[in-house]
């Protein structure tokens, strides 16, 4: 299985490769990718350096253009596809069929990956994209169980990539408008979720309030661990009860499932977190590298080492990790 690492900067890209990533994914500093955050992402010069660096090591660079071209602005997204091709990216990760038409016709030999934002949850959706655009790989939504992943893997010839570690989206990706409902900006239209420009923290007497465009997303007692106010992870009131009404701020951790994913034929494990630091990338990738190597070497004797878990837990959002939808304790 290939290990695919996030890179929000050249420093993170280098850290990922040094730690043993087989491929890194990155995007431009604009709305063409789903991590369009202040001070993050790559200039074309940086991508050039990054591609050279990765290719010198025999690794790959995947270019994410995984938002939806907005009305009247198709050319910005096409320019990004042109840039990916011209800068020597090994594949582009796309979500929008209209953009796939362009990429497939203009660059028939370029490898196309269907982004998780493309929300292909079953084999018909994936096969349609293969028949139409010859996609080579699909990143599966984080809503699927192991059983469902196994079935999809059997039913398509497209390579399967799944998330192995990072923050969890509890909603089907690419079809969530919660962020624009609260702030005007969403993953689909701006490449952001719960954007920083709408976030205000205020602390009075140790009580920390996290607001998004004025809407109270969460309130923390003095000393209580906080989380970024991603709105689906806030605490709200439903019928008089105050709680995480949608989802707890946990991280996905598929460390324990690696041999099973490999046995099903999953081709790549993806780590979430282009917005996180090179320190995060280096430690998470090094840990998963060691685990994947162990799973490849002797799958039957594979056990999750406590130091791997400790290393990953240290970087987890909300300081707890789960196997997420993979085993669905709530189903």
């Amino acid at each position: 299985m290939e290990l695919v690492a996030p890179a929000g900067s050249l420093a993170a890209l280098k850290a990922a490769l040094e730690a043993g990533a087989d491929a890194v994914y990155l995007g431009l500093k604009n709305a063409t990718n789903a991590r369009n955050f202040a001070g993050l992402n790559f200039s074309e010069t940086d991508i050039c350096t990054g591609v050279e660096h990765a290719h010198a090591l025999g690794r790959k660079v995947l270019f994410a253009i995984n938002t939806f071209p907005q009305p009247g602005r198709t050319q910005e997204w096409r320019n990004a596809v042109d840039a990916a091709h011209d800068l020597g990216a090994d594949a582009v990760i796309l979500a929008d069929p209209g953009l796939m038409v362009y990429a497939h016709e203009r660059y028939p030999r370029m490898r196309l990956h269907l982004s998780v934002q493309g929300s292909a949850t079953h084999a018909d959706a994936i096969e349609l994209m293969r028949e139409q655009f010859n996609i080579q790989r699909v990143v599966l939504p984080r809503v699927l169980t192991l059983q469902e992943i196994e079935r999809v893997t059997r039913q398509t010839q497209v390579e399967i990539e799944v998330f192995g570690f990072g923050s969890l989206c509890v909603m089907a990706e690419g079809r969530c408008l919660l962020s624009s409902f609260a702030t005007g900006d969403s993953p689909n239209n701006k490449g952001v979720c719960s954007p920083a420009h709408a976030v205000r923290w205020s602390e009075i007497g140790g009580q920390l309030d996290a607001r998004l465009n004025g809407i109270l997303i969460d309130r923390y007692a003095p000393g209580e661990p906080a989380a970024y106010p991603t709105l689906c992870k806030g605490r709200f009131e439903v019928e008089g009860r105050f709680d995480h009404a949608l989802e707890e701020p946990t991280s996905l951790n598929a460390l324990g499932l690696l041999p099973r994913l490999a046995a099903m034929g999953v081709k790549a494990i993806k780590v979430e977190g282009r917005q996180r630091s090179p320190a995060y990338v280096a430690q998470v990738i090094a840990t998963l590298r060691a685990a994947i190597n162990a799973a490849n070497l002797a799958p039957a004797r594979y056990v999750v080492r406590p130091d791997w878990q400790a290393s990953l837990s240290r970087h987890a959002e909300g300081s707890q990790t789960t196997q997420g939808a993979f085993d669905r304790p709530w189903k």
Binding site: F68, P69, Q70, P71, G72, R73, T74, A95, D96, P97, G98, L99, V101, Y102, G174, R175, N188, N189
Partner: peptide, 9 residues
């Protein structure tokens, strides 16, 4: 997610 003309087409 039909946000632009090429996807509508």
């Amino acid at each position: 997610n039909a946000y632009h003309g090429a996807t509508l087409a």
